[in-house]
């Protein structure tokens, strides 16, 4: 069992290191058109100096809704699990 663990983990982590090596070089990303668009147009379209905020709340606002939902879920879940039950 122990060797199953070690072997599988080594394989996975080795491939992950491979992925790290095969990535585009650090500091020189592909400068995708999407991000170039954000940097150029966000100030005019969303009216905010902080491009990250305009991405978070405007261009990808739905993700943020999902994130707020996750937090809400967690709070409700904690309340559900830690509620006092007399039974």
């Amino acid at each position: 069992m122990k060797w199953v663990r070690v072997g599988a983990l080594l394989l996975v982590v080795g491939l992950l290191f491979g992925a790290a090596a095969w990535m585009r070089p650090f500091g020189r990303p592909s400068l995708a058109e999407m991000d170039a668009y954000f940097i150029q147009k966000a100030q005019a379209e969303a009216g905010a100096n902080n491009v990250v905020t305009s991405v978070v709340f405007d261009y990808r606002g739905f993700d943020t809704l999902g994130e707020a939902t996750v937090l809400f879920c967690a709070v409700v879940g904690v309340a559900l699990v830690l509620r006092r039950v007399l039974r």
């Binding site: 069992m1 199953v4 663990r5 072997g7 599988a8 983990l9 394989l11 996975v12």
Partner: peptide, 17 residues
């Protein structure tokens, strides 16, 4: 729990391979 995750990592390793 460790075994659960172990088998998941095994599955991951097989899939990756």
């Amino acid at each position: 729990v460790g075994d659960y995750v172990t088998w998941m990592v095994v599955l991951l390793a097989v899939a990756l391979l």
